[in-house]
C-alpha cells in the first residue's frame, strides 16, 4: 500500500521508534505504579516498615469499619449530587450557547471555559474560601441588605461550590459539543408541527443529545468523586470523603496499605460508574437511530 517499496521486516524500526515512547513511559510510570498500588493493599506494616506480603488484613480492617462505609456513601452521594447539579445548572447555558448565541459569542465562551479548565483549581478554591467566609465579600454584601451572615463554609454547600468550580467548565463544554451536533432539522420539524420550545427541548433536543449529556454528568461525577481540595478546604472535611481518608492514612497515619485499599475501592467504583453510564448512553434500545 502506501508504505515504501522496501521489504517489510518483522519489526519495523521506524514504526517501533514512534510507538515506543508512550508504550514504555505509560507502562513504566502509569501502569506499574497502579499495579504496585493494588499489590500494596495486601502488604503489611511491621515495626513501621512496609513489608511485601499477601494478607487480606487491610481489606478486612477497612471493610469492617463503619467510618469507611460512611465515607464511601458520603463521597458517592456528594459526587452524584454534583453530577445532577452541574448538569441542571449548565444545561440552559449550554443550550443558549449552542442555539441562540452568535458564533463570536460562542467562540469567546469556549475560550472562557477551556482556560479555567487548565488553570489553578487550587487557587480558585482558595478564592471561594475567602468569598464565602463569615467576613467574606458575599456576607458583607448580604449584610448591606440586612441579611445573614450565612454559614457557607465547612458544610455541603461549601463543598458543592468547590466541586462545581472544578467541573462546571468541562460539563458545559461537553454539553455544548453534544447540542451543537443535534440535527437542526429535527428541531425545525418539531416547531413546524406545533411543538412549543420547552416541549421540543425535552422531547427532541435532550433525547438527541443524550450521549453527550450523560457523558458530561459522568465526568462531573468522576472529577468530584476523586477530588480532595473541595471537601477538605471548603467542605470542612467532616464527615470525611474517600479522598480525605487516603490523605489522612498516607500523610499523618503513614499507613499506605490502608490508603491503597481506599484508592482501589475508588478506582473500581469509578470504572463501574463509567461503564454503567456508557451502557446507559449507548446501550438502550430505541436510542439508536
Amino acid at each position: 500500500m502506501a508504505t515504501p517499496k522496501r521489504s517489510r521486516r518483522l519489526i519495523d524500526g521506524f514504526a517501533a521508534f514512534w510507538a515506543a515512547p508512550a508504550l514504555i513511559w505509560q507502562t513504566a510510570f502509569f501502569l506499574a505504579p497502579l499495579l504496585v498500588l493494588i499489590s500494596m493493599s495486601f502488604w503489611v506494616v511491621r515495626n513501621y516498615r512496609l513489608t511485601p506480603d499477601f494478607v487480606l488484613k487491610n481489606w478486612e480492617r477497612m471493610f469492617t469499619r463503619d467510618y469507611f462505609w460512611a465515607a464511601y456513601l458520603h463521597t458517592f452521594e456528594l459526587a452524584l449530587l454534583v453530577a445532577v447539579l452541574a448538569s441542571v445548572i449548565a444545561f440552559p447555558a449550554s443550550h443558549y450557547l449552542a442555539f441562540k448565541a452568535s458564533p463570536a459569542a460562542r467562540r469567546w465562551a469556549m475560550f472562557l471555559l477551556i482556560t479555567p479548565f487548565f488553570t489553578s483549581y487550587l487557587v480558585r478554591a482558595y478564592s471561594w474560601k475567602i468569598i464565602l467566609s463569615t467576613e467574606g465579600v458575599l456576607n458583607v454584601v448580604f449584610g448591606w441588605v440586612g441579611l445573614g451572615p450565612f454559614e457557607m463554609l465547612n458544610n455541603t454547600f461549601g463543598a458543592c461550590v468547590g466541586y462545581l468550580t472544578l467541573c462546571m467548565p468541562l460539563v458545559i463544554l461537553i454539553q455544548l459539543f453534544a447540542l451543537s451536533n443535534v440535527n437542526r432539522d429535527l428541531i425545525g420539524a418539531a416547531h413546524n408541527l406545533g411543538c412549543g420550545p420547552l416541549k421540543t427541548t425535552f422531547t427532541v433536543t435532550i433525547p438527541a443529545a443524550r450521549v453527550g449529556l450523560i457523558l458530561a454528568a459522568t465526568f462531573a461525577f468522576i472529577l468530584s468523586f476523586g477530588d480532595y481540595v473541595s471537601p477538605a478546604y471548603l467542605g470542612g472535611g467532616k464527615p470525611p470523603t474517600m479522598s480525605i481518608l487516603i490523605v489522612d492514612q498516607t500523610k499523618s497515619g503513614n499507613h499506605w496499605p490502608r490508603a491503597s485499599v481506599v484508592a482501589v475501592t475508588m478506582v473500581v467504583t469509578l470504572i463501574t460508574v463509567l461503564f454503567t453510564a456508557l451502557f446507559a448512553a449507548y446501550g438502550k434500545p430505541g436510542g439508536k437511530k
Binding site: 510507538a19 502509569f30 505504579p33 476523586g226 484508592a263
Partner: peptide, 27 residues
C-alpha cells in the same frame, strides 16, 4: 489497548495517581 494506555492517565483521579506514584517511587 495501546491507544487506551496512552490516553487513559488523565481519567484516573490525580490523588490516586499520586498515591500510586509515591509507593512506586519509594521502591
Amino acid at each position: 489497548p495501546y491507544l487506551a494506555l496512552a490516553a487513559l492517565p488523565p481519567t484516573v483521579p490525580v490523588l490516586i495517581l499520586g498515591l500510586a506514584m509515591l509507593s512506586f517511587f519509594s521502591m
